[in-house]
């Protein structure tokens, strides 16, 4: 494709990214660096602040449309702290799956692919995209949560009982390395599309059109990185290497969840997440 076509594709994916993802990297950066003019997030660092912070989780400052779309997680008063945190993270994850799905459908050519292949691409790609999306929300001390209204400290997450305390640490480690690439939101949009359009996912029937779509997005990504980050010629290669780390990270995460399901009898897994993780790795 001509470079003008590739730039148009980049613009289109960037617009879709901003339409579907409420907490962008630039917004997260502003919140984390305290540049939000007194509107700083509520910090959850212990059980007391977790209880107080539930108010912020339930009262999201989102546009009306977003509020209508969301269904609040059911309250379970006498629930154990760890299970309560896990349930809230799961609930937000299920919402994020919907956001990623809408973004995925906006990738030019995606909805013309075989329907079962679309499902496989989404099933395998969605947690990788969500894990990448988490990186800009994190710094070495903690992570933003609930659309940037909450900051949950890394120490608090580490203080949860086993195995819950082990779940977020690998994501913090990935984020620290990923954030060094200093991608911007438009780079992230293209990278998400590249992840989704992976032609090597198990069970795909018609690989060729998927690879063709991915090739075009890869060209758009390469062109964009050269244009926006001319001082970092290795960026494209470095970014593609992250895809291998992501697969490993997600495979470990899914194994962890399967183990949790067996060990924690009181733990309920969200039906959408259950569907995605069933037979995944």
């Amino acid at each position: 494709p001509e470079s003008a076509d590739l730039r148009a594709l980049s613009r289109q994916l960037c617009l879709s990214y901003h339409r579907h993802f409420p907490l962008t990297k630039s917004k997260a950066k502003a919140i984390l660096s305290g540049k939000t003019h007194g509107n700083s997030p509520f910090v959850i660092h212990d059980m007391k602040s977790l209880t107080a912070g539930q108010y912020f989780i339930n009262c999201r400052q989102l546009p009306v449309l977003e509020r209508q779309r969301s269904v609040l997680p059911p309250e379970e008063p006498a629930e154990e702290l760890e299970l309560s945190v896990f349930r809230r993270i799961q609930f937000r994850s299920a919402e994020a799956v919907q956001e990623v799905t809408e973004f995925t459908k906006s990738i030019p050519g995606f909805t013309e692919l075989d329907m079962n292949d679309q499902v496989i691409l989404l099933k395998y790609g969605v947690i990788e995209v969500m894990t990448t999306m988490l990186a800009p929300l994190m710094n070495k001390d903690g992570t933003l949560f609930a659309y940037g209204q909450i900051f949950m400290t890394r120490e608090f997450l580490k203080s949860l009982r086993k195995p819950f305390c082990e779940m977020m640490e690998p994501k913090f480690e990935f984020a620290a390395k990923f954030n060094l690439l200093e991608l911007d939101d438009s780079d992230m949009a293209l990278f998400f599309a590249v992840i989704i359009l992976s032609g090597d996912r198990p069970g795909l029937v018609n690989v060729k059109p998927i690879e063709d779509l991915q090739e075009t997005v890869l060209q758009a990504l390469e062109l964009q990185l050269k244009t926006i980050h001319p001082d970092c010629p290795q960026l494209f290669a470095k970014l593609l290497q992250k895809m291998t780390d992501l697969r490993q990270l997600v495979a470990n995460h899914v194994r962890h969840i399967h183990l949790l399901k067996k060990q924690e009898l009181q733990m309920c897994l969200h039906p959408l997440l259950q569907e995605i993780m069933r037979d995944l790795y």
Partner: peptide, 20 residues
Amino acid sequence: KEKHKILHRLLQNSTSPVEL
């Protein structure tokens, strides 16, 4: 298809609310 009915529904429906 039965194994992935929510994903199918998410992919086929437009941006209308999805009951989970």
